[in-house]
């Protein structure tokens, strides 16, 4: 699949309900995080995106994913 990339996706907090903790999925080259969010179908109305990280670094939804990257998706969380 030369025009596909593999992305490991990790979900946290409320996003895990009825979904998964970690999953490896394939997307078309030049896919953004928005594309992934649409594919997974999270309830963003109830739980808006808090933090997106790719390989441990904060990114935005328009980030263009590369092959073999790790995407972590968090709703708004806090504590301390």
């Amino acid at each position: 699949m030369p025009d596909m990339i593999s992305v490991t996706i990790k979900l946290f907090a409320q996003y895990r309900e009825g979904k998964f903790k970690i999953d490896k999925r394939f997307y078309a080259k030049d896919s953004t995080i928005s594309d992934v969010l649409e594919d997974i179908g999270l309830d963003l109305g109830k739980f808006p995106i808090g933090v997106l990280m790719v390989n441990g670094r904060h990114v935005e939804e328009d980030f263009v994913l590369q092959d073999e990257q790790m995407l972590a998706i968090f709703p708004k969380v806090g504590g301390g």
Binding site: F12, Q14, M53, P75, G78, G79
Partner: peptide, 25 residues
């Protein structure tokens, strides 16, 4: 109405931080 004080903290407690702090290294 705040997603953190209204949703996240009641559901998971302060310990919800383990994963996000871990993910950020």
């Amino acid at each position: 109405e705040n997603p953190i004080s209204g949703e996240g903290l009641p559901a998971f407690g302060t310990n919800v931080l383990v994963n996000i702090i871990n993910e950020a290294g």
